[in-house]
Design a protein around this nucleic acid. Sequence first.
RNA 1: GGGCGGAUAGCUCAGUUGGGAGAGCACCGGCCUUACAAGCCGGGGGUCACAGGUUCAAGCCCUGUUCCGCCUACCA
Length: 892
Amino acid sequence: MPDEASRNQLPKTYDFKDVEQRWYNEWLENDLFKATMDPGKPNFSMVIPPPNVTGVLHIGHALNNTLQDILVRYKRMDGYNTLWVPGTDHAGIATQNVVERQLAQEGLTRHQLGREKFIERVWEWKAKSGGRIIEQLKRLGCSCDWSRERFTMDAGLSKAVREVFVRLYEEGLIYRGDYIINWCPRCHTALADIEVEHEQAEGSIWYIRYPLADPDDKKFVTVATTRPETMLGDTAVAVHPDDPRYRDLIGKYLILPLLNRRIPIIADEHVDPEFGTGAVKVTPAHDFNDFEISRRHDLPSIDIFDKNAVLNENAGPYKGLDRYEARRRILEDLKTQGLLEKEEPHVLAAGECYRCRTVVEPRLSKQWFVRIAPLAKPALEAVKNRDTVLVPPSWERTYEEWMTNIRDWCVSRQIWWGHRIPAWTCAHCGELIVARTTPRACPKCGSTELSQETDVLDTWFSSALWPFSTLGWPEDTPELRFFYPTSVLITSFDILFFWVARMMMMGLHFMHDVPFRYVYLHALVRDAKGQKMSKSKGNVIDPLTIMEKYGTDAVRFTLAAFAAQGRDIKLAEERIEGYRHFVNKIWNAARLVLMYAPALDDFMEITREKRPQTVAERWILSRLNQVVATVRQALDEFNFDMAARELYQFFWHEFCDWYLELAKPELNSEEPERVKMAAAVALTVLSKSLRLLHPFMPFVTEELWHHLPGTSGHIMVAPFPKPFKDWEDKEAEETIANLMKVIGGIRNVRAELGIHPGARIDLVAVPHSEAAQRLLASQGQAVRTLARVGRIDLLTPEDRRPHGAATVILEDMELLIPLEGLVDLGEELRKIEREERKILKELDKVKKKLANKNFLQKAPPEIVQKEEEKFRKFTAKLEKIGGRREVLRHLA
RNA sequence: GGGCGGAUAGCUCAGUUGGGAGAGCACCGGCCUUACAAGCCGGGGGUCACAGGUUCAAGCCCUGUUCCGCCUACCA
């Protein structure tokens, strides 16, 4: 804690460098992030979307975790038991790839190392570099309960995975079977449908002739295909049963070119006679549709690829060729034999592995699947009846669409890093055993020769359990009872299906309740031009670099201010620079307020008992009140951008630009009571603003908090401001609004006439109402200070106006600035005529409305009243402008 | 093919029950005014994509069109 002298003396600019580290450590040392389980308080809990252990903090993480931290800090200050569970994901394929690349540098493959040694290597790597992203989250200021950090491969979480797998198997919701799946020839594993990405691209479609085995009037059937190389695995050609072109051929045989295999012509409803030639080659082992057809017609499957998508012995002369080389050769050979009819351009969307971008190969193999329909149904219902609310709600339809058309989930992966599937096969009798613990002997035949399934589970299988596995499930822990379901999940929309949907399914199935009450889906961070950031494009904004450069608070505030619902964030470095200026503004406002802190002695903040005196004081407190309400509501509704903008606008343009300027005369007054009151109001607004800002900018607010008089403890656990009804003051707001018009008008005249900002000018004011008189009487000091006015003379509307004066005309007031010689009366006349025309136009619109009977009848009375008020104001202003115009015409 | 979102100032975007078009940045002009030049003061700039409709009243609601994104899909 700073001593009294340093408390009130701040350096001129804010240096975030040492501050950030210092306060983060202090929060940690004081256990301020730790969850409490006080039964007397409401709960707020979140689980972090676990970043990959391999990961490095990118701008998407920065956004995601900033938003979570804002919410959890807000709730913590607002008196909730808060729990934010952090952790990382083992990211099977990605992590395995990283370690394999390392091995490759040593000239090794994982196969040379063997499974156990390889896994050891991965753990070693994880111990050494796996914590990097966690450290980076700390730099971002995240207030996670680090004592509860979890990893998806931890013993506890692994136990949960086994429990879930076994239970689902016992319930018949997991099965093993030979099906066609997406195979990545580079990662050497099966992928789930959702892990395959489709990008449209220009390609070709080839028309190939398959000769009839017994030619009659027809010699061949032409098929169209985008993948000629798969013809080696063809076991039939299908046509639509009603297609007149082919009806007679059904049941006959074709000779598959190149391999000379006899294959039948079959009839299947699936074939679209309109497309291509209406005849489809059927390759059951390498195409999803063809696989379905083959099952309907009991056709054989011929796998022509090995795990690298290189042609195998079933490909005859093409054995050993890579699939693309094979395609070239096959097309060449067909051409030579006169069987290639034509090639046409064709748009297609080949599937790519989401981890490595290799084109995937549909492949028939033995895999494990989760039967999804029974799990998806309740997950769909939960969103429909709003047990879980998606924000923004536009995602509901997308979610529904996906949940309705979802297919069974392939969960087995042919890699080594992950949760090994708890299934064993008996070498003796072939029995399949699925068990929580390693079985010693086959329950059927008693043999001890059991071999465990070598596949591991999809990483998303374990992350689907995250909201309850991290809280201790399958044990019945106090945390689980206290914090499940979690309050909110904040994540990026692109993992809605990968992760959110699966957590919904698993949560409902195993916990009998949704995993979270709200899901807030934020957008992607793109570059300034709206392009996705990528290393290859070189347009990446690295959060660590910019945090280093502008400070963490500026980065966080920028991300929050741009986090509008349902829209991508286009981020440019200039934005962050702009918000760094805001951080500095806060710093300097605090410096000013603290200069007057000694005057406060015991008085401190404004409370119920201490009533503000001046109109400005009443005004700023009234505005503060509204801001408190707005910020709270915005955060409650996940409108982070609105909350941030409101705070920015209020603090800078109302508190700094107007209140502090208006307060300066008070602060420098000879009367101690006035100084005290002004300082107390300033301190109150500052203190509450800092608390409102703390969730967004934890560091600078904490630093300043400790310099404020009368504070204790840390701002991160100080109460979040609540609105205070007594401070509402519409009258003060109106007065200050009018004062701003007066000062603004005079400043405008000064600027237009090129009067030096330091020079004092005199003012002649003509009030046309009592309110105007009161304003001039009570706010003369403010006008003199903020508009650099010397004398203020008052005239009545009947008095003669001074010659050669610039004019400002308000609704109930004329302001004249006598500047003989400086004012070009001709220009002044033109200006006033311009203004007159503008008001006439406005007045015309109002008149039309008021003349409209329908408007008077149907519009709500308060709107009609408003229009009448406008009519009155415009007329009054016009009258004064007209008078002034006449005067100027005579003079000019 | 199906679905979703966007089009508002030069740029990036707010505008939540329909009721006088806003902010930040950029730009122009003037200021080192004792908190802040990372600042202060002033200023210009918009047929709210287009066409209809509902309404006393539309940036906002409805219909259609154009353009731009994204997601999804087994026309080979």
